[in-house]
Design a protein around this nucleic acid. Structure first.
Length: 654
RNA sequence: GCGCCCGUAGCUCAGUUGGAUAGAGCGGCUGGCUUCGAACCAGUAGGUCGGGUGUUCGAAUCACUCCGGGCGCACCA
């Protein structure tokens, strides 16, 4: 495929430069501005111009003469003021696509852990959480497509302040017993408000209550204490709430086809003394010290020099253990990060939590040994933490912790896979009936706030998308049965949502807008799905006409392929489709799922154009028709592959 | 105050890590359905890449600076 051809050309040119000029240089390969310039462009002459003190144009000309011929390349030409443009031999290239060599899989480089989602289990998920999960899940799919071994973790903070606040709401504000809350969970009433929605409201109410009655904060302290001690009504309620919300989140994410391998929970980090082990290590290696003076007196702190860059005037150390002896979030996160690399000398116990319909099981951490043996979790070679950019500072501290402990390698392989937040556009707030302060109304966007209950719930958005898609499907295919219509609508809706969240690069703030998110036209998931569906339709229609797919390998000779590929439009579609692997590699290197999404869109565009131009099934020339059918099949395969990486389904029809 | 991110067409965004005449989608205007179904295609208008200085063969991209916007900088998570 394309990247193999690229590599071959790089090798030949690098060798030629080495022999001729005695210089080692990385050969950059670009896409020419215009397709008429050829398929690849080498700016190598520019790179060499300075050291050789020669005009780029001359170097390029000399190189072209020196290189001679490269397998699979029909011509090299000097263009502009020193580009070397490469034209591929279309016949050879096309033929190699029809007879692909088996992919060589890279050797096992160890396990990669990707941690994502990580929603506080105290309320329904919102669109910000969706961005996290979709980015994380897509990155996982990208890595797996390249043959990496990946473990997906979703960290559950089931003992934190946020859960405590909902418990406070149930216990003190609503006067509910654990039994009553449990009953709420078992309600069979389909019209009942979902539990995670109830908690969403209650959390906002409790937060407001604190604001109006600051003395109520003692309830929170009391609840946290009870949770930590592990017994009493409040602790019972906390587990009830957290477990139920975790289930709700898993269900929400499953709608988007997002699955996990293991859910490490904060409760086990506490009970299994993970922190104690990490604390001992940090003290022993002098990564933290006991502060005797100043505002942090009585705390164990990490010196600012460990995680601040030079030139950062902020001298504040980071508190790891509070003066009352309790550990901060960062401390626990250091312990967790150590465990991920197998550096803690401790492990969780595990039990299976749920089994997805495809048979895959999610495991959850638990304090006591279990009868059923679990797969091996943790002990990774690389770790990606998918967390929004607002937590960069804390992530830096965690990595600094590893480094201070002497785990330099692991520190380098701890990647904060950061992304910008999803905010609400002013118009979106208006749609939701949210009143903004004069100050907020002037802003380009407004931050989502769980505390204020300000946000778009993930399930609401998905429901809206499904309804909208269903409306379209029903109007286009009124004859089909409702269940099938809905199944297609769901696939379209989820495709639209995933694409919408992926098309922005990671450090772009998404100002969420219903009109854009609900669009099924233009650069959207459904557009891409539509192209895949149309390709499939052609092949299916062929069968309906009583024909079978030709044996392409038997019928298409290199000469025949070369002849057909003289057509520029055909060549461009085939070329674009053959770049799926190259696009994926580039996207993984850049750590940018958006690149895969954009590639899928470009490919779909190429095909839509092709579809309009060539009536494949009506093509009278037999040889040409066979060729067009092959192109259709090849395109369909590559797009399916790419959509699978994006987690987007190809519907049966549209 | 310090640190990080952003500023590209009316709007929302890309821009392969410094390369050729800066690209998409939406919106605007023109055309195209006799079912491989138009959730589509073709065409068109629209740009001082926030401003300035510099680095070099070459800058939207790098450096410095100014302007404008966002987010961090807790004994909260």
């Amino acid at each position: 495929m394309f990247h193999l051809q690229e590599k071959q050309i790089q090798t030949v040119v690098r060798e030629c430069v080495r022999v001729r000029y005695n210089v080692e240089v990385d050969i950059a390969i670009e896409q020419p501005k215009q397709s008429s310039f050829g398929e690849l462009a080498l700016p190598v002459a520019f790179q060499l111009a300075k050291s050789l003190k020669q005009a780029p144009k001359k170097i390029a000309a000399d190189l072209v003469a020196a290189i001679g011929t490269i397998p699979g390349v029909s011509g090299l030409e000097v263009a502009g003021n020193g580009y070397i443009n490469v034209r591929l031999d279309r016949s050879t290239y096309g033929y190699s696509l029809l007879h692909p060599e088996p992919e060589t899989t890279a050797g096992d480089t160890g396990k990669t852990i990707v941690e994502h989602t990580n929603i506080n289990p105290n309320k329904a998920a919102h669109i910000g959480h969706l961005r996290n999960a979709v980015l994380g899940d897509t990155f996982v799919r990208m890595l797996r497509a390249l043959g990496h071994r990946v473990e997906v973790q979703n960290y559950i903070d089931n003992t934190g302040v946020q859960v405590a606040d909902v418990v406070v709401g149930f216990h003190y504000l609503e006067r509910q017993t654990p039994a009553q809350v449990a009953q709420l969970l078992q309600s069979d009433d389909p019209d009942a408000r979902p539990f995670d929605y109830i908690c969403w409201d209650l959390y906002a109410r409790t937060s407001q209550y604190y604001k109006d009655n600051p003395e109520a904060l003692k309830w929170r302290a009391e609840t946290l204490h009870s949770i930590e001690a592990g017994h009493g009504e409040l602790a019972e309620m906390a587990h009830l709430v957290a477990d139920a919300i975790v289930n709700a989140h898993l269900a929400t994410m499953l709608r988007l086809n997002i699955q996990y391998d293991v859910l490490p929970r904060e409760s086990e980090i506490l009970h299994l003394q993970f922190w104690a082990a990490a604390f001992a290590l940090l003290k022993e290696r002098k990564a933290i010290y006991f502060e005797n003076e100043g505002k942090n007196s009585g705390c164990w702190v990490m010196p600012s020099s460990a995680f601040r860059g030079e030139g950062d005037a902020n001298e504040d150390s980071k508190v790891i253990v509070r003066s009352n002896g309790t550990v901060t979030y960062v401390g626990k996160d250091i312990a967790y990060q150590l465990w991920k690399f197998g550096l803690l000398g401790k492990d969780f116990h595990y039990k299976p939590l749920i089994r997805y319909t495809d048979g895959h099981e999610v495991w959850v951490s638990i304090a006591e040994p279990q009868p059923r043996p679990a797969p091996e979790f943790g002990k990774a070679a690389r770790v990606y933490n998918v967390i929004d950019t607002r937590q960069s500072y804390l992530q830096d501290v965690v990595v600094a912790g590893l480094r201070a402990l002497g785990f330099e390698d692991q520190a380098q392989r701890s990647v904060h896979f950061s992304y910008e937040m999803v905010a609400l556009s002013p118009r979106c707030c208006a749609d939701l009936g949210i009143e903004l302060s004069v100050e907020d109304a002037r802003r380009p966007y407004v931050e989502v706030s769980g505390r204020k209950g300000l946000g778009v719930k993930a399930d609401d958005l998905m429901d809206k998308l499904v309804e909208s898609a269903l409306h379209e499907v029903a109007s286009r295919h009124p004859e089909d049965n409702p269940a099938a219509q809905r199944a297609v609508a769901v696939e379209i809706a989820m495709g639209a949502l995933r694409y919408f969240l992926l098309k922005f690069t990671r450090n772009t703030v998404i100002a969420f807008d219903f009109q854009e998110a609900l669009s099924f036209e233009g650069e959207t998931g459904p557009y891409v799905q539509y192209a895949a569906v149309r390709a499939g339709r052609i092949l299916k229609k062929l069968e309906e006409r009583g024909e079978t797919l030709p044996d392409f390998r038997a019928e298409l000779s290199p000469e025949a392929i070369g002849r057909q590929l003289e057509n520029e439009d055909c060549w461009q579609v085939l070329l674009a489709a053959s770049k799926a692997g190259a696009a994926l590699e580039r996207a993984v290197t850049a750590g940018e799922p958006a690149h895969v999404a954009r590639y899928a869109f470009q490919l779909a565009q190429e095909f839509s154009n092709f579809y309009q131009r060539f009536k494949v099934l009506d093509e009278p020339d037999r040889g040409r028709r066979t060729f067009l059918l092959w192109m259709t099949e090849f395109f369909a395969l590559q797009l399916q592959r790419t959509l699978a990486i994006l987690g987007i389904a190809v519907p049966a029809y549209m």
